[in-house]
Computed example of a mutant assay.
Amino acid sequence: MRNVIMVLQIIIAIALIAVVMVQPSKTNGLSGLVAGGSSAESFYSKNKGRTSEAMLIKVTSVLAAIFAGLCIAQNLVK
């Protein structure tokens, strides 16, 4: 049972790393400093909850919760 949980944990960890690496950066870096970082209302900012970025955030949250649950399960199984 412990081996199964460990294999699942490794698979979830790799998937979590991949999903985090695919997400775009939240900062503008130096371009936001030079351009003033204007946050004008656009179609993208109004519909941000329905984009692929929002889906990646949800997947990251689910994978992190599963990973935490597997960590707890691994410590409980002896």
Score class of each variant (00 low, 15 high):
V34K: 11
F67Q: 02
K26I: 00
S45H: 11
I12H: 04
T60L: 02
T60N: 11
T27G: 07
N47D: 09
L63G: 03
P24I: 01
L56Q: 13
T27W: 11
R50S: 12
S39K: 13
L70D: 02
L8W: 12
A68H: 01
V62Y: 15
R2T: 00
A40H: 11
I10D: 13
T27H: 14
R2H: 08
V77N: 01
K46W: 07
G37Y: 05
S39E: 13
L8A: 08
I10T: 12
E53P: 03
K58M: 09
K46A: 03
G36S: 01
A18S: 06
L8H: 13
G29P: 02
T60H: 11
I17V: 12
S25N: 06
A13T: 05
T51S: 14
K48G: 08
I66F: 15
I57A: 07
I5G: 00
K48Y: 14
S42C: 02
S45R: 10
S45M: 09
G69P: 03
Q9D: 08
S61C: 10
N3S: 07
K58Q: 09
I66D: 01
P24M: 05
V19G: 02
F43S: 10
M1R: 07
P24H: 08
A65K: 02
V34Y: 10
T27L: 08
R50G: 08
A40M: 07
I72R: 01
K46L: 08
Q23A: 01
I10N: 12
A73K: 00
V62S: 08
K58H: 14
F43W: 14
A13W: 06
A15L: 15
K46C: 01
L30G: 00
V22N: 06
K26F: 12
L33N: 05
L76I: 05
A65Y: 09
L63M: 07
I5E: 00
S31Y: 10
I5L: 15
M6A: 11
M1L: 04
I72G: 00
V20I: 14
E41R: 04
G49M: 06
V7N: 15
Q9P: 03
I12S: 10
M1E: 07
R50E: 12
A64D: 10
N3W: 13
G69R: 03
L70M: 05
F43V: 05
A13G: 10
N3K: 07
N28F: 04
E53G: 00
L63W: 15
S38T: 11
V7C: 02
G49P: 02
K26R: 13
N47I: 02
L76Y: 11
N47K: 03
G37K: 06
N3E: 15
G37W: 08
K48R: 14
K48V: 10
G37D: 13
S31E: 10
V62G: 02
V62M: 12
S61G: 15
L8Y: 12
V20L: 11
R50Y: 15
A64R: 06
K78H: 15
R50V: 01
A15H: 04
M6S: 09
A65Q: 05
I10F: 12
V20W: 11
A18L: 13
M1G: 04
G36R: 01
A15P: 01
C71P: 06
Q9Y: 11
G49Q: 03
V7L: 14
T27A: 11
L8T: 04
S42R: 12
L56A: 08
I66E: 06
